[in-house]
Write a protein that binds this DNA or RNA. Structure first.
Lengths: 201, 201
DNA sequence: ACCTGAACACCGTTCAAGT
DNA sequence: ACCTGAACACCGTTCAAGT
């Protein structure tokens, strides 16, 4: 095998697994950005199942243009939440391990509930090999696992708790944030009860 | 006002709030039952957003017949889960308050995750006045509140915990049961961590 | 009282024709 | 390289005609 190791071309990636990239031509970039802005607005207002027709209209482009840039709804969602994920992964937390863990978990919960319905999509990414969020989920799990391990090393959290269980807590609390009553913050309460359950004085 | 207090007639209830009832005519009852059976199968296989066309076909009736018996998807879902809810409400639990509370919570979690997507519908019922699950949610909350209060009276659970928070735990754990990885029971773990967090020795 | 299925509406997705 | 919008498919929902 003397073939050089080339990056995957656009054509080699099936549409379902293709990540959206910002075009080079000026009109393409304008439309791409307008679509993203419209998508964020629509997802925020109607959840992740917002009408794609509506998004295209709001962005002032034809529906085919939307599909040209974002082959699937997930590709659009992923692009619309990419910055928030980067922010979460770069988050600096408190040096005290238990406080730091709590802060990070609450930020992860906020990220996963960016839009109504988003957390289910993200959770898929943890198990589905082909999901666009596989890498992102992996990175989140890794960061969470680090903070968990640090808290365990410091004797602040029970040794038996696993990274997967921490990830489960983030998902469950995010679902609560999306679905609980409007006038009461159940997700933070849930996180605190669990941290009480797994922490040591 | 001398008008007698009559029960609401069919016509007085808007379709969205109408609860399905078993018809009196023999052919109607046959179709009603066949639809329910097909619905349970379809919901179990594809979640609560299963195709209604498919359900009607599987039941061997026209789509109009389905709508005749069940004016909305929620009406069909409610009828398909009515027995399970009754079972939950009639559940006898252990006399030891904390054990009893745990058993009931796990059964409530199982009920709310009967079908993929079901828990979000149920959670709506807790806040939406018009939901078909309003009564059911209220009954669940009442039963949960009873068991919670008993555990608190016995000094086994922190006084500050509220019935709404218990209901939130049930919903969050049910979401996990619907969405977590297939080979790992994250929802029971979550319940146990929370019970650890709120219980007293 | 209940059943049927055509008709309509809505929305996601593709693709041939264009610049 | 990118845009357009008609065309198709799928599915939920209604309703006039029937038994």
């Amino acid at each position: 095998m003397t073939t050089s190791h080339t990056a995957p071309t656009l054509a080699s990636v099936p549409p379902a697994n293709r990540v959206a990239t910002r075009p080079v031509r000026a009109d393409g970039r304008r439309n791409y950005d307008a679509l993203l802005q419209a998508a964020r607005k629509a997802f925020a207002a109607r959840g992740t199942s917002a009408s794609l027709d509506e998004i295209a209209s709001a962005a002032g482009v034809a529906i085919g243009t939307l599909y040209g840039h974002f082959p699937t709804r997930d590709a659009l969602l992923e692009a619309a939440t990419r910055d928030e994920l980067a922010g979460l992964l770069a988050l600096d937390v408190d040096a005290e391990p238990l406080t730091g863990l709590r802060t990070w978990v609450l930020h992860a919960v906020a990220f996963c509930s960016t839009y109504r319905g988003f957390v289910s999509t993200v959770a898929q990414g943890a198990h589905d090999e082909a999901s666009l969020w596989r890498e992102g989920c992996h990175a989140m799990e890794t960061r969470g696992a680090e903070l968990l391990a640090a808290a365990q090393r410091a004797g602040r959290v029970r040794r038996e708790v696993t990274p997967v269980e921490l990830f489960d807590l983030v998902g469950a609390a995010a679902w609560l944030r999306e679905n609980a009553g409007p006038d009461h913050d159940g997700s933070t309460r849930l996180v605190d009860y669990v941290l009480d359950g797994i922490s040591r004085p």
